[in-house]
Design a protein around this nucleic acid. Structure first.
Lengths: 218, 218
DNA sequence: TTGACATTCGAACAGTTGTTTGATACAAAC
DNA sequence: GTTTGTATCAAACAACTGTTCGAATGTCAA
């Protein structure tokens, strides 16, 4: 009764995958259900059958895809930290940047991930509430705890949050604003440029954090 | 023959204004012509009469509104620079950040401005080409010229561009991602928080630039 | 007043939107 | 075999999309 053998779950999964791709590329309203089903090689009713509505399909993308990836990146970040008790801020920032720029995600996955989030930030929906509570907030709290004790003394909680946000700002920007960066920098996102970006964000962020370490020359 | 006396030009201007507001808030596809005309208190045909098409209305928003504001901010930046021959990178960055965060724009104008651009970067259209060529590229070239001679020696052109992009990344982010920042930071964008943001971006950017000055405590 | 003009209005256009429905196919349980 | 539950498919739904059209309106020049 649950599923046939093969094509059943696959159809739902195909829809989810194509929907995520198209939503990330064009945004919610610019993508029609028919465009999704065409890409997923199924019929229009399939979306409402499997997900109830277009809106719910969009939420499912965040629940079943985005959140998983976010947690994977967070785990990668923890595994990248040195074994010692209290890593230096520099080490935390480096692990953070590497997890979110390099990390466990393929280039294409990362592009989807950050474009979806950028759109969600530009016009928040229930999706942001959900992944915000279950994915972003807890991780942010964790970051504050890790960075807190070792930060330049006297720095306020507010100031520290802003620092972390500035790091995410760059990670997000250099992913979702690729076209503008390409236009301005006159460079494509090839392997070499990607590597340069990683190094730049790490260095810029380490310095920005307060120049707490000479490790910034990475 | 050209215009009536009053309501003529005003209708076109009202459409442009409401269109800009709605486009910046929801994005191109999420806004219907009827929604715009309803907000502008005119009739559906008015858009096609005055602008030809919805797409052209969108382009007009960038041509007649966005570009003007960009140029105004750039001029404000120049006027903020000290009179001396070659301002230090710190002075340039400070003038830059202040022009784009504070500057000649009202809070609401700035919000519109950066949200429009963020959307355009997420999915570029002809609009980005246009304002890219006429607004962004020339200003970027100017920045490179101003910063170039005084930067930490040996820094590559590429690296310098990335530094500037990282500054813009923050300016853009803290404007278009207000909801996420509010969610994470637990603070509204009140006057106090805005002031803190300005100071943070300047400090973070000055440090990120390479810690070239102790002025960073500004 | 007359004519020319630009603008407004209301209605309608054809096309697309998300969603619903009923028929059909198919596998597993009885 | 029959029954049961699930998935696929095609057709249709009403609502909305951007755009076009012709009549009406108001304003200026002659």
């Amino acid at each position: 009764m649950t599923q046939k053998i093969d094509n059943d779950a696959l159809t739902k999964e195909r829809i989810l995958d194509k929907a995520e791709f198209l939503f990330s590329q064009k945004g919610y309203h610019a993508v029609s259900v028919r465009e999704i089903t065409k890409a997923a090689r199924c019929h229009v009713g399939a979306v409402n059958y499997h997900f109830g509505s277009k809106k719910n399909l969009y939420l499912s993308v965040f629940r079943d895809r985005w959140l998983n990836r976010a947690l994977r990146m967070q785990q990668f970040f923890r595994d990248s930290l040195p074994d010692r008790e209290s890593p230096t801020p520099a080490e935390v920032v480096r692990a953070l940047a590497q997890a979110f720029i390099g990390g466990p995600l393929s280039d294409e996955e990362r592009l989807r991930h950050h474009q979806l989030m950028a759109r969600e930030m530009a016009k928040p929906s229930e999706a942001l509430d959900m992944v915000g509570e279950e994915g972003m907030k807890p991780f942010f709290k964790e970051l504050v705890l890790r960075l807190g004790p070792a930060m330049p003394e006297g720095i306020g909680r507010d100031r520290m949050m802003l620092n972390i946000l500035s790091i995410f700002a760059q990670v997000l920007y250099f992913n979702f604003a690729r076209s503008a960066v390409t236009l301005i920098a006159g460079r494509e996102y090839d392997r070499e440029f990607n590597a340069m970006l990683v190094e730049h964000i790490i260095e810029f962020s380490l310095n920005g954090l307060g120049g707490t370490s000479e490790e910034s020359r990475g």
